[in-house]
Design a protein around this nucleic acid. Structure first.
Lengths: 196, 196, 196, 196
DNA sequence: TATGAATGAGAATTCATTCAT
DNA sequence: CATGAATGAATTCTCATTCAT
């Protein structure tokens, strides 16, 4: 979906507000005063607040997905890909902490089916990408075969997500990249094939 | 803290409401009509809505902590303990799905320091218990030593949390125990010492 | 009216609360927790909050009136009496700042006739006492006769009241006695008969 | 500050409500039903109830201050000025009895610093104006010099304030102008220089 | 496109008071 | 005497949304 200039502006303001005060800070009033336009004007560009979040999630999904696609283009080993997946995901959140809040607030969207499904979709995407990569690694002998790729993907995603979660709870003040690196070290030891 | 009959009733209603409609459904009005008393009457038993959540978290913390303590009493191997930790935690949520919502909504309490800290405390508790158990296992030779107990604990917690998260997102309709069992199998393979 | 022990206790607490937080701080809840008894118990001793204020005003009236009576007993000049009236009134408030708040909040009682009338009565009392004293002074030649005793009383009362008012607005932190002394000096110059 | 039409309307309604039922009658609900708009609509024009009172006090301050300024322009004697000050002030309240209530309820605003300070400011303004006028009169020989201008100003203000107070307590039903005239006569006798 | 004005529904909390025990 | 429990009416304020211009 192509966004108009005003729409982008609104989405940017949305991101900023969430970053500064969490989902609760995202009100039409705050949004309009952030942008400098009337509250009613927001409704010229989006039909509802839910739609704004919808587009925001689309945006996030787009970023994440294209990140996955990029990794697939690369000619590198499976473990390297896993590394890129993790560091890439963390990079995305590092650059846009509000996305961390959005993705972690999943429970909030329960009542709004669209949003709920979009969140699930983003997670499914990550999962299937991890699974594909791990499958490759298992075939090539890089990654252990005694645990299914689903399970390994699950373990990895859980730890990445927990990292993001702790980072968000800490108020975004530890070095996400460093944490990601040491996480990957652990994961790589855990999942790679035993050499003996 | 000992709760009065009415207070328990309110806490139970709180749990029910959160279970049915998420944190958003927890309003004083809903609470009072759930119990069948006036809104103002709620305030005879709790000084504020925040206090209700506070007590709820205390309750959750109590349940979780006593679960940990029980495990420590048992004369079983470290791996068995890890298994009990995981299954026990999942059991708690299985019996009280709303607790899953509460613990996953951590971001929401950012503005209310007390709640925020209580959530963090509960997680820290789990973490340090896992670490202690893993340390033992590493000493006894059950658990691999090439990864620190902190890191292993982190991996486990991440996957447990993700399990709960997916269960919540799914509307609580998959078998949490089964999922827990297969998760533990994976984890046990990952963390136990290589036998060769 | 004779007060029971509990009633006195409640009146004392009332005075304390008003002193600490103004009339707004006088709630049945605050009152009961100040005394350490249940809210409902208050109603064993007073039929309503208005009645409490009623009794408080009676108490104040009693203190003020007996102060006036004392002055009348003394064998001193009219000017001396005026001085005692002023310093005595200020003393009463100095010892019980809450009384200042009560007497200055007169407007609040508009809707509650009893209270309203009681306040007016207290003021009338002071007025007629001043008038009597001034009348004496005018007869004896101490006090000027070109202005009616009513008018002189009015002037005096206005300045005394403004003193109390400013003292209250300042948070009770200037020396009321000193201010009273210098006020009396001014008044005595103004009202005494010209000696030429 | 320039007020919008709606804002003026709200301020007028505020004045009316206070006039009819005292400060206690000033609730958002009363305000909105007085004007015929929804409660929430009030908040489109003022950010809070306190802000409404704030603006009201600004308005009062403006009226009072411009009244003082006018007096200063006039080429009349000091005593004439004092007379105009008194009658002018009483006129303002006579035309807007609610202002009397507002200014006499000073104690109520203790908790709301802004309002509290605004009230004090208005009184300080009056005081310093009186002092300036009296100083002039003392220089020109119109007004007695044996009492400081501060003290004389204080006496005058006290009696003016008491006049307003009694008028308010009486339910605004005596002739304020007449009372002001006779008050001035008394004051003029008291403060003017002795001719002998 | 944009705005100003308005709104209904709801949220948390306070308060004086009542009543059965 | 005293209390615990409860209540109805208010109160301030927030929020997403609509509509005429």
């Amino acid at each position: 979906m192509k966004l108009s200039k005003r729409q982008s502006e609104i989405i940017q303001a949305t991101i900023k507000l969430i970053g500064e005060g969490g989902i609760q800070a995202l009100t039409i009033k705050n949004l309009s005063s952030e942008i400098g336009m009337a509250e009613s004007a927001i409704y010229r560009h989006f039909s509802s607040k839910t739609e704004i979040l919808n587009v925001l999630l689309d945006y996030l999904k787009h970023i994440v997905t294209s990140h996955y696609d990029n990794i697939f283009e690369l000619k590198i080993s499976a473990l390297e890909r896993v590394k890129k997946m993790i560091s890439g995901q963390l990079n995305i959140f590092n650059e846009n902490p509000p996305f961390a809040i959005v993705i972690l607030s999943d429970g909030l969207y329960k009542n709004e089916k669209e949003l709920h499904e979009k969140i699930i979709l983003i997670m499914e995407n990550a999962k299937s990408t991890f699974i594909k990569i791990i499958n490759e690694g298992q075939k090539s002998g890089e990654i252990r075969r005694d645990i299914s790729s689903e399970q390994l993907a699950f373990i990895i995603m859980g730890s990445v997500r927990l990292t993001i979660n702790q980072w968000s709870l800490s108020g975004f003040n530890f070095d996400l990249k460093k944490r990601g690196n040491s996480l990957f070290k652990t994961i790589s030891i855990l999942i790679q094939k035993n050499k003996y």
